[in-house]
């Protein structure tokens, strides 16, 4: 079973939000909500500064607390790419997953179910990259199978200095920020 992941090169990212916009149109994300977002972190004092810009979203964790806490099985791990997905038909909107997710990656859709990044599973099944990856004008986002050592994502994570978000939560996040 493939284990899809992203490697995002923060040295190239300019924080333009194209990933956020492309996700919104591709996935008809309702007004006021988004499934990915930009974080800018400045460190230091003027003029000796460092700025890390990250495009963040659901980490499609190896050990997803949102799946473990879901009372109905709506949140589940897909066999396709080991993706963490939500079945809106099974979701009762109890928000346990929202509380469980350390990344604040989930929202409640106006139709009452939990919603989040799907890694554009509908596009993956057509052989396309997720919309955010495909649109990025800086080519800072790389998508692929972490279980395939020859994949671009595996090679980048192996070769480049990187970090993931809140690894200490033990969730096994699969988005790696190259620095």
């Amino acid at each position: 079973m493939a284990r899809f992941a992203m490697a995002i090169d923060t040295t190239r990212c300019v924080g333009c939000m194209d990933c956020v916009v492309a996700c919104k149109t591709e996935n008809d994300v309702p007004e006021g909500l988004c499934r990915d977002w930009i974080v800018q972190e400045a460190r230091g004092a003027f003029p000796d500064l460092r700025l890390e810009i990250r495009s963040e979203r659901c980490n499609h964790c190896d050990h997803p607390p949102c799946v473990h806490c879901c009372p109905t099985g709506a949140s589940h791990v897909e066999s396709f790419g080991s993706l963490v997905e939500i079945d809106p038909k099974l979701c009762i909107g109890c928000k346990a997953c929202l509380a469980a997710c350390p990344y604040d990656a989930r929202t409640i859709h106006p139709d009452g179910y939990a919603d989040k990044c799907t890694f554009c599973i509908h596009r993956l099944k057509e052989g396309l990259e997720p919309a955010c990856v495909a649109v990025c004008p800086t080519h800072c986002m790389h998508f692929g199978d972490l279980d395939d050592p020859a994949s671009e994502v595996s090679r980048l994570v192996a070769a480049r200095r990187n970090h993931s978000l809140i690894p200490e939560a033990g969730t096994g996040p699969r988005i790696f920020f190259l620095t």
């Binding site: 333009c16 194209d18 916009v21």
Partner: peptide
């Protein structure tokens, strides 16, 4: 110009 990738304004 875009090599298949619009900017956020174009996408929006």
């Amino acid at each position: 110009l875009s090599h298949g990738r619009l900017c956020p304004r174009g996408t929006g």
